Simulated assay, not measured.
Amino acid sequence: MEALDLIDRKIVAELMRDATLPLAQIGEKVGLSQTPCWKRIQRLQESGVLTARVAMADPAKLGFGLTIFVGIEAPDHGADWRAAFTRAVASLPEIMEVYRMAGEMDYLLRIAVPDMTAFDTLYKRLTDAVPIRNVTSHFAMERMKFTTAYPVDTRSR
């Protein structure tokens, strides 16, 4: 897809702030009528800029009061191990995010569980599913900032 113009960036920014906004309100905020706004949103979805529209929830109110960031050091970097690791993390819904990293750790996971017992169970399931050289866990004490909205530039250039 070509670079996003100012109106596309404004649409994306509005949807990241609140995906429940009515089309007319989004159009009003970005300076378009409903039909051109809807067409742009469709194009942004088809091109993969917009990947989903979801509701955000408070993890603690859903019973997921413990967030852990886990660093994984792989025993090897072959295709077979990577495929097994990918299957293992995909099978564990408590693992919310997985990143392949550069630097000291090979993978970084964000995990949400109810408590330490649940984390221990997940840890055993993961390490039983695939060999891991080293695991380093960091327990979040407080979520001070959280957003899923990227800081899209909505200023005219």
Rank of each mutant, 00 (worst) to 15 (best):
A3N: 12
A3C: 15
A3Y: 08
L4G: 07
D5M: 06
D5F: 02
L6K: 05
L6G: 11
R9H: 07
R9V: 09
I11V: 09
V12H: 01
V12W: 01
A13I: 14
E14K: 03
L15F: 10
L15H: 07
R17Y: 13
D18T: 10
D18G: 11
T20N: 09
L21P: 03
L23Y: 01
A24V: 14
Q25M: 14
G27W: 03
G27T: 08
E28D: 11
K29H: 13
V30Y: 03
G31M: 14
L32P: 00
L32Q: 13
S33A: 12
Q34P: 04
Q34G: 08
Q34C: 15
P36L: 15
W38Q: 12
W38S: 12
Q42N: 09
L44R: 10
S47M: 15
S47A: 15
G48D: 10
L50C: 08
L50V: 10
A52M: 12
R53C: 13
R53N: 15
A57C: 15
P59Q: 02
P59N: 04
A60V: 11
G63R: 05
G65A: 08
T67F: 05
T67L: 06
V70L: 04
G71K: 12
G71Q: 11
I72H: 00
I72T: 00
E73Q: 08
A74N: 02
A74K: 02
P75T: 01
H77Q: 07
G78T: 04
D80R: 11
D80M: 10
W81N: 03
A83H: 05
F85P: 00
R87E: 06
V89A: 07
L92S: 01
P93M: 05
I95S: 01
I95C: 02
I95A: 01
Y99G: 03
R100W: 05
M101I: 00
G103T: 05
G103H: 04
L108T: 01
L109H: 00
L109V: 00
R110H: 04
V113L: 04
V113S: 00
P114F: 04
D115W: 02
D115L: 05
M116C: 13
M116T: 13
F119H: 02
F119P: 00
D120Q: 08
D120A: 11
T121H: 06
L122P: 07
L122W: 06
L122C: 09
L122F: 06
Y123N: 08
K124D: 12
K124M: 14
K124L: 14
K124H: 10
R125F: 04
L126K: 02
T127M: 03
D128Q: 08
D128W: 12
I132K: 00
R133V: 09
R133H: 08
N134G: 15
N134Q: 12
N134E: 15
V135M: 06
S137L: 06
S137A: 13
H138K: 14
E142K: 09
E142D: 13
R143Y: 12
M144T: 11
F146G: 12
F146T: 15
T147I: 09
T147K: 10
Y150K: 14
T154H: 08
R155M: 11
S156Y: 12
